[in-house]
Write a protein that binds this DNA or RNA. Sequence first.
DNA 1: GTCAATTACGTTCTCCGTAAGGATG
DNA 2: CATCCTTACGGAGAACGTAATTGAC
Lengths: 310, 310
Amino acid sequence: MNLSVRHMRAFMALATLRNFTRAAESCSLTQSAFSALISNLESDLDVKLFARSTRNVDLTAEGRAFLAIVSHLLPETERALEQMQDYVRCQRGRVAVAALPSVASGILPGLIASFARDHPGVEVVVHDAASTVCVDLVRNRQVDLALCAAVSPRPDLLVETLATDSFYFICLASHRLAGRERLAVDEVIDEPVIVFEPNSSVRQHLDAAIYPRQWVRSRQLNALSTAAGFVAAGLGVTMVPTLGLPAFAQLGLRAIPLTLPLNERDICLVRRSGEDSSIAAAAFIEALRARVQDAMRALAPEARIHREAR
Amino acid sequence: MNLSVRHMRAFMALATLRNFTRAAESCSLTQSAFSALISNLESDLDVKLFARSTRNVDLTAEGRAFLAIVSHLLPETERALEQMQDYVRCQRGRVAVAALPSVASGILPGLIASFARDHPGVEVVVHDAASTVCVDLVRNRQVDLALCAAVSPRPDLLVETLATDSFYFICLASHRLAGRERLAVDEVIDEPVIVFEPNSSVRQHLDAAIYPRQWVRSRQLNALSTAAGFVAAGLGVTMVPTLGLPAFAQLGLRAIPLTLPLNERDICLVRRSGEDSSIAAAAFIEALRARVQDAMRALAPEARIHREAR
DNA sequence: GTCAATTACGTTCTCCGTAAGGATG
DNA sequence: CATCCTTACGGAGAACGTAATTGAC
């Protein structure tokens, strides 16, 4: 016995309308095809479900029992199919994303908000972590994708550069370099700077950028916002990429574009290779590709000044 | 989309075994047919459910969602089909029977007990009522069948005589006729008898049997058991059919076969014509036909004496 | 080279629609 | 005779099996 949704729909139509001709219409079938369908259902179940005279159609006792069953089963089945269509239309699902703290705070909020508008019902979970942790989360299948700094190529990973980020020198408006439009590395190399922890991707990029030279370190901190407080309090200067700028958006601070030997820091999308993304994850990646560059441009102080000028 | 049990079973098999060849076997299909089946399911749902390399089969994210759905839906559907099979195998259902009190108390208990052994899960409901009420219950579809006295033929009723019943003269062992093997109507016509209510089928048959003559009525009662008490207390004699004898099975009472002009009282099966019985009702009727005569013979005092003698 | 899934292809069976048949009011 | 369900029949498409093909270890 191979009961199908078609069988149940036909049965329900006939049980409700008690008329083959109209039930057939409601199923978009000819009366004869519909008759055969019901007849097959009956012989498959090995039960007469309808007592039909040429003039009247009525449920048998067993037909009433089947009606009681199908009344529950059919809606449940159709709900299940609807649910699957929601996955296909990307109105249901789950995307887990690992991201560097700067990415998570800088561009994900706006991006997730607009993704949620297009795909209500899709849950987006964000893990913020350092680059190496992000990559491990991808490899362990704890997340669908990661947004982090460039990683060494591995056969099980698919890495794609989504955007490039550049660095800014952060100081008080009263600092001697505060009036400059752009700075070169040699102009700031002797400045004691507030640096971040060695495993942060910002620190790693900055260290690598001037290797084998080294920065003059005044302090070492963890969070961007802490560094912002220190700079605002006149306790030093620092350097951060565009994505880190929102933490420094407070009065009295200047962010000046900085030219480094290794000037661009890649923001990469990392996935497992040889594995298709879920529909929801694919849609999220599509949204990322479409909007990451714009989102980053919006964070640059030039853009901000431009916006304020309007 | 026409999801069927076959689809769900195939999906569950593959999701469980993660191997096309073995899943195909478990569904009694060749590997190629099974592959096509899964492929059709995917294209019907418009979702890739399995990520397959030539070496490995794994669920996709959407496949896992479908698994969660089907894990509930399939067992429920199979339970529903099982339930229908129970109706077919007559292990589930309901039979409503209307019967004369004498039938209900005389032969139905044993018959229902043996029917229940063969058909556990089938509920048998008994309405005991006078013949005319029984017939109305059938016509109003409140019961599937009635066991009652002969009724005047109607086009909407199907009447079948299942058994014939004969009458007995009931008296104390000390009564002047107590020693007789058989009595004729003339021998008891002048005896004041305890009669039953005019609409009882026993009364109607007894009155009709000697029409236009009439019985000498000493008392009029309703229940057989009441009459038995009266006779045992020496308050009179009465006459009942075989089916009424169990109520008089007490010490000191004699039941003597009586020959009346209208000697046989038909016990009829009454159904609605032009309508098939439910499977359960049909089985009950079958059991009735097979066992009613034996059940009635077992009630006759001759049989009882015979049993006691062994 | 072997195991496992897909593709190719011919047969069979099912499903559907047109059209004729039969029962009932 | 009009209505409504069933049966008859032919064609389109689906399902299945055999067998060849592709791909990964």
